[in-house]
Structure formats: structure tokens, C-alpha cells
Design a protein around this nucleic acid. Structure first.
Ligand SMILES: [Mn+2]
Ligand SMILES: [Mn+2]
Ligand SMILES: [Zn+2]
Ligand SMILES: [Zn+2]
Lengths: 136, 136
DNA sequence: AAGACTATCGCAACTTACCGCAATAGTGTC
DNA sequence: GACACTATTGCGGTAAGTTGCGATAGTCTT
């Protein structure tokens, strides 16, 4: 079953704008912001409205095709749900970003599940702190 | 040395607005939003501007008197830096919040320090996921 | 191919947060 | 207490994101 068929099977519609959002996410090599998606779409479809991009990202997230993460305080970043998951370390002083394997975060997830019955999504928010250089 | 003296010693000024922000944080029992602080101040000082509240929170954070955390996606919550630190588990389905001891998060912090030289602030962002009831 | 149904769109207004700027008001000195 | 210095204020504007609404356009049926 194609993505379009799945979307239609759930009573939703495969609009040109929705397909363009999916295409932009497929082209992206890493997490991108909604504004970057909008800009990328405007090259071939100038009339796209930012709210259409936001609403489509939310709809596609509900269907399980995309997810978002938070690297810094303000901006939300999006990626295809089938792209490899990983954590982030972000320095609050110099802004440097480092990707880390989920295996580093797994023991905490396991403990939260065991002690609190909580299924944690530890890739959702970056871990903030001070990098080696900034901590001194 | 009082807070006011410390602020003056650093070349800053103890304005009525700054004192009102500190008072609002002292009255608060738990983390509060900038908007809640502004509303609380407006009761006795209606002309306060939201930007003044934000700027004072940032200034007081630089001085080490307050800190902020992120519980859900968008809202920033503030508290006095001398109030006890703790982590949060937030359910993305039902919105329930649970406080957890920093000792649960400490092993991950230690590992990030050892393997990546990164001094993590694991209380800064809540851990999002699904609570026991919502995970099923 | 045409028609009905309604999900989705573009637009405008709104929200939280941030920033530049001229006016205001704390501060230390006299 | 008055004065000069300048940190901070209130205001207006900007950015990211959300929401209400009337118009548009996918989709299913015939
Ligand atoms: Mn933050
Ligand atoms: Mn989020
Ligand atoms: Zn750094
Ligand atoms: Zn829940």
C-alpha cells in the first residue's frame, strides 16, 4: 500500500501541497525546520502558505510518517520517521551539536520503564549542557 | 550580601520591575510561566510590559538567581535557582506530569561526561513519552 | 463525465517570545 | 538634595507557530 493509498484509506486526501511536503522531507539529508521546508517548496509552488506546511507536518506526524525534535529552545525540526533515530548533545554556550547513538540513552529509557512505567522518547529533545571545550 | 546589593555590585540596577519579578518567583510554589509572572505582577503594577518580564528573567538567570525548564513543547517555565532541582516525565497523550529524582538521571549524565566530555543539564527539558496508563 | 461531500487550502488575525530605540529612572558622586 | 551617567523601561515591530473561516479542490458515487 502506497503512502497516498494509506492516507486516502484513513479518509484524508493526497493534495499537491501534502505531496510537496513529503517530497521536501525525502530530499532533506537531516532534520529541517518548517521554514526550510516551505522555502524548498516555494521554488516549484510559490503560493504555498506556511500554515499549510505546519498543518501537513502535524497530519503526517499523526499518521506516523514524520517526527519532530527540539534542538535549541525555539525551533522545531522535522524528519521522516523511517530515517535512523539518534540523540543530540547541544552546547548552550557555543551552540555546537553532536549526534549520539540511542544505545547511550537506552539504559535510562529502560530504567524509566521499569521504575515509573514510562515509555520515554529520549530523542525528542536534545540534551543541553556544556561541551568539552566550553566546560573547560 | 542581599540580592539587591549583589545586583548593584555587578553594575546592574534594582528596579521596581525587577523586584516584582523576583517577588513573583518567591511567591510561586512551583515552576511558572513568564505570562503567569506578568499576570501576577499586573495586580499591583498594571503597566508592566511582557518584554520587561522576559528581559528580567534572562538577566536574573545570567546572575544565577533563576533557571528555566521546558515541560511541554512550547512553554518555558521558570523557578528560583535555589529551589530543589528535579527531572520531569511528561505524557504526550494525556499531559500528565511526574517529578523524578535527579539520581535517576545521574548515571546518564556521568556517562555523557565520560564518553563525550559533555556536562549535561538533564533537568532542562522534560522527558516526553507515554505514561503507564497511555502506553497500555 | 458530472455532482455531492467535505478535507484542505490560503488568508488574516492572534499568541508567545525577542529586539531596537528613544524616554525614563536607578546609582554613585558632589 | 541636585547632577551626570547609563541600565532599564515601554513601545512598536518581527519571527515562529496556531487558529477561524470562507473558498477550493480531492475523492467517491452514479
Ligand atoms: Mn531552554
Ligand atoms: Mn515536541
Ligand atoms: Zn560549547
Ligand atoms: Zn498519559
Amino acid at each position: 500500500m502506497t503512502v497516498a493509498d494509506d492516507i486516502r484509506a484513513k479518509g484524508m486526501r493526497m493534495t499537491v501541497q501534502r505531496r510537496l511536503v513529503l517530497d521536501a522531507l525525502r530530499r532533506a539529508r537531516h532534520h529541517i525546520t518548517a521554514e526550510e521546508i516551505a522555502r524548498s517548496i516555494r521554488a516549484s509552488y510559490p503560493q504555498i502558505d506556511p500554515s499549510t506546511v505546519y498543518r501537513n507536518l502535524e497530519a503526517l506526524e499523526r499518521l506516523g510518517y514524520v517526527t519532530h525534535t527540539h534542538l535549541d529552545d525555539r525551533v522545531t525540526r522535522w524528519r521522516r520517521a523511517d530515517s535512523p533515530q539518534h540523540g543530540h548533545l547541544v552546547c548552550r554556550r557555543c551552540g555546537s551539536e553532536e549526534e549520539i547513538s540511542m544505545s547511550v540513552l537506552a539504559p535510562l529509557a529502560k530504567r524509566l520503564k521499569g521504575e515509573h512505567g514510562f515509555s520515554a522518547d529520549l530523542a525528542h529533545s536534545a540534551v543541553v549542557g556544556l561541551c568539552r571545550e566550553c566546560a573547560g
